[in-house]
């Protein structure tokens, strides 16, 4: 039994999923978008109308957060965060001059594969032919992928992407989502007939 549990926990796809901030935040947001409205509906301290209103608003807010996260993180924070990290650590062997975050992510996917699986893989075409760890290195990164059993992994590059994701999480989910929700959720709630125009909603806590 315990071996089966260990096998599930060590499944390479699951490990990769759990190590990726985007996937974990997405999973958490989906659970929040379902769990929190259900919990609010179960809160008997508040009247039913208010519960329905609060649960719908919470669900919509979490979906808004997920939308913001999925669109802003890869296209803005990951892109520019990786570039900024490259500028800060310019010339460092642990963070070579990848064209962008996407090129590193393709490289990382290939580096995790078995050597025989890398040969002729379509992702190889997305790795620069001239990119080296440093000027002193005789092999390019592409050659490392084709010749080494374990090509260099560049944890600093992965860390730079994770740090960008975390920064994006704070700015996107806590700041932008809160600001946007004030402008988007009220018209949406009006559309769903939970709010009336020019009439404020009151939350009635049972005495």
């Amino acid at each position: 039994m315990i071996d089966k549990v260990a096998n599930v926990l060590l499944n390479p796809k699951f490990v990769n999923f759990a190590n990726n901030t985007t996937y974990t935040v997405t999973t958490e947001s989906l659970f929040k978008a379902t769990g929190r409205p259900v919990a609010i509906m179960m809160d008997n301290n508040v009247d039913e109308k208010t519960r329905k209103y609060a649960a719908t608003k919470e669900g919509l807010y979490q979906l808004l957060c997920l939308g913001i996260y999925l669109t802003m993180i890869p296209f803005i924070f990951q892109k520019y965060g990786f570039k900024l990290a490259q500028k800060i650590l310019k010339g460092d062997k642990d963070l070579p001059a990848f064209k962008n975050a996407a090129e590193y992510l393709n490289y990382a996917k290939l580096a995790k594969m078995e050597k025989k699986d890398r040969q002729g893989h379509k992702l190889l075409s997305k790795i620069s032919d001239t990119l080296k760890i440093s000027k002193e290195d005789k092999l390019t990164l592409k050659e490392h992928l084709l010749k080494d059993d374990k090509p260099p992994a560049f944890p600093a590059a992965k860390g730079a992407i994770e740090l960008s994701n975390l920064t994006g999480t704070v700015i996107g989910l806590a700041w932008i989502a809160s600001e946007l929700s004030n402008h988007i959720l009220h018209p949406l709630m009006r559309g769903l007939r939970f709010e009336e125009k020019k009439k404020s909603n009151t939350i009635n806590i049972k005495g």
């Binding site: 958490e28 650590l89 806590a174 700041w175």
Partner: peptide
């Protein structure tokens, strides 16, 4: 900065993302 990136790259936990969201959302 390099130490931070190295640590996050070697051992990133789902916990870090969750804690960041909890703190920032709890305040903002």
């Amino acid at each position: 900065f390099k130490n931070l990136c190295m640590n996050l790259g070697k051992n990133n936990k789902a916990l870090y993302g969750a804690l960041t969201i909890a703190v920032s959302k709890g305040i903002l």
